[in-house]
Write a protein that binds this DNA or RNA. Structure first.
Lengths: 352, 352
DNA sequence: TTGAAAGCGCTAACAC
DNA sequence: GTGTTAGCGCTTTCAA
């Protein structure tokens, strides 16, 4: 069916160099065990034939493919437009590329397929290990991977009390500082547009909520559960929840958003409601994406170390592939970057 | 070194089902050639043993890996933060996933490595084919791939007069319409912040310029070459070139930007220069990204069909893998989406 | 330091 | 419809 380019094999090289296949293999993999003159001859033959070792054949024998899967259980529409996820992928890519691993990216068309996809890739040996985004059902996958001895790392905890093979970002510190900052700025009623319940399978552990609550408690402000709304990280949900909260509870003057796009949406809602930045409302973003810093330079933000999370996950999966049985989970801390100092660019005419 | 999970092989299945290996293989690949009862027995054995075919072994025999490489010759810092490139990847991913191919993403640490990386992946059989982003030096790669019969598709033309295996976006129509629109709105001096010369190896073919120029000619406006500046797609370059043009040629009242991030930068520069939207200056963006539509809903834009470009490239590489010798290049057309209708949200206080 | 032979797990020829 | 055999291109004993 498909044209097969004839490519030189290790045997061709051996024949041309007048040595055995094994010697060629040695030159390729452990050339220090080969006499310098033989080595030279082999290398000559290799370049003369434009020989490239067949990675598939090596994989079959060695039993690993030098490839890691990055599997995200959300529609690809969502994934490739999510700058945080892309930053995680970025970190994963860099860590793996540096060590010579390839990255297969998969965002199966529907969520349920993702778990099968992870299993499929791993069990069919397309990949040596998987970096997985947590979502409901992931605990089953983890159990299965563990049982079968298949290496995996989760980007965030996959279930309550997971102790191994994850890289989590603890937002509590950032949310705590952000909330204190808002209170110190005079706000008394603070809305929280947080991550979706069940997103990570253990809503009670939402570190945004934890930090937010801790600051309120410390400063003697009563928690108002009705001020907390769930978004799904998107612009639209930020817009919607901002409007909902501000219309229902006009006393709220500050909003903590768990993602940058939700902050964008909140800002747009603010404009549409003819509210003025700082005068009527203050917003804190949740990711501190480079793009956000450029477009909204006055926006304070919790920082979300997505790149570092991905990079650590990449390093962790490599350690597992190299024989570590399991790796203790890593928890990265979010910071808070205050930027209020100049008024937010907004005019009344923007709301026409 | 690394723990090897013992997994069932096709022989185990054959033994348990009491049939020959070939029969199992038949059930897996062409099950219609197998008696229903035997098939049942084999399937039973498969599920009993939790058997998953080893893709590596199949690849070795079949001579293809069912994997396609997506190689971008820019620093990964650049790639994963570029929403257009991610949309292209998105399209590639969707097209390939749908047909059961895996996608390996690689953005080698430095530009020069990218070409080697493409060759390495293809020649070592990690991938069956490559989707390549054009950059200087790509013509050599194309020549080599062609010579060796290795399938490739380029996202945009890799060199002047390339006729096969590319998916290009022709911006001329969009730029033409955008320019006419600006002229019709009363602008007479229009700046163009275009793509970097040499980005695609044949600067004389810049379709932004072509469309811009065509509109000027048609409406009898003299082309002022000094009104044309090159950016590199980024916020920073948009900011810089806007300032440069507006400070040097204050008569310019409209700016056409070849990317959305450059339009963001231009908008920021406009604010910093205390200029007013529409009153002093009008800007047209170059990508029409979903995010831009949300953040700057009043911003007219040329549309850049990045997703579709990626999807077509995915379909094209599949056709090549399936035996097509070469595929005629595809040219997608950019449109223009006018959105001016409401003033741009900007106030004097934003420039403090 | 080098080589011969076996085999990774699958599929393609070619029988039966 | 089904089974036997021989590889795919490497690496890995083991021996020389």
């Amino acid at each position: 069916m498909r044209k097969e380019p004839r490519m030189a094999t290790l045997y061709d090289v051996a024949a041309l160099a007048g040595v055995s296949p094994k010697t060629v293999s040695r030159v390729l993999n452990e050339s220090h065990l080969v006499a310098e003159t033989t080595r030279k001859r082999v290398l000559d033959a290799i370049s003369k034939l434009d020989y490239h070792p067949n990675a598939i054949a090596a994989s079959l024998k060695r039993k690993f493919s030098n490839t890691v899967g990055f599997v995200v259980p959300y529609g690809s529409d969502f994934v490739f437009q999510d700058l945080n996820m892309m930053e995680q992928l970025h970190g994963v890519h860099d860590a793996l590329t540096q060590e010579g691993y390839n990255v297969v990216v998969s965002a199966p068309l529907n969520k349920k397929d993702a778990l099968h996809e992870a299993i499929r890739l791993a069990k069919r040996r397309n990949v040596d290990g998987i970096i997985l985004y947590p979502s409901s059902g992931i605990d089953r996958i983890i159990a299965e991977f563990t049982y079968k001895g298949l290496p995996y790392v989760t980007l965030g905890m996959g279930f309550k009390d997971q102790r191994w093979n994850f890289v989590e970002v603890d937002m509590a510190e950032g949310a705590y500082l952000a909330t204190k900052y808002l209170i110190a700025s005079g706000h008394r009623y603070i809305g929280l547009i947080t991550r979706p319940t069940g997103f990570f399978n253990y809503p009670e552990n939402d570190s945004y909520y934890a930090g937010y609550n801790a600051a309120l408690v410390e400063l003697g402000i009563t928690l108002r559960p009705e001020f907390i709304r769930e978004g799904n990280f998107t612009f639209e949900s930020g817009y919607r929840e901002f409007r909902y909260l501000k219309e229902k509870y006009p006393e709220i003057t500050a909003f903590l958003c768990a993602s940058d796009p939700m902050a964008y949406g909140a800002i747009q809602a603010m404009k549409d409601m003819q509210l003025k930045w700082l005068e009527d409302v203050e917003i804190v973003a949740g990711d501190n994406l480079p793009l956000t810093q450029k477009i909204f330079p006055f926006l304070s933000s919790i920082s979300n170390p997505s790149y570092e999370q991905g990079r650590q996950a990449g390093k962790m999966i490599i350690a597992l592939l190299r024989g570590q049985k399991e790796m203790p989970g890593i928890v990265l801390k979010a910071e808070f970057i205050p930027r209020r100092g100049r008024p937010f660019p907004i005019s009344p005419s923007s709301n026409l």
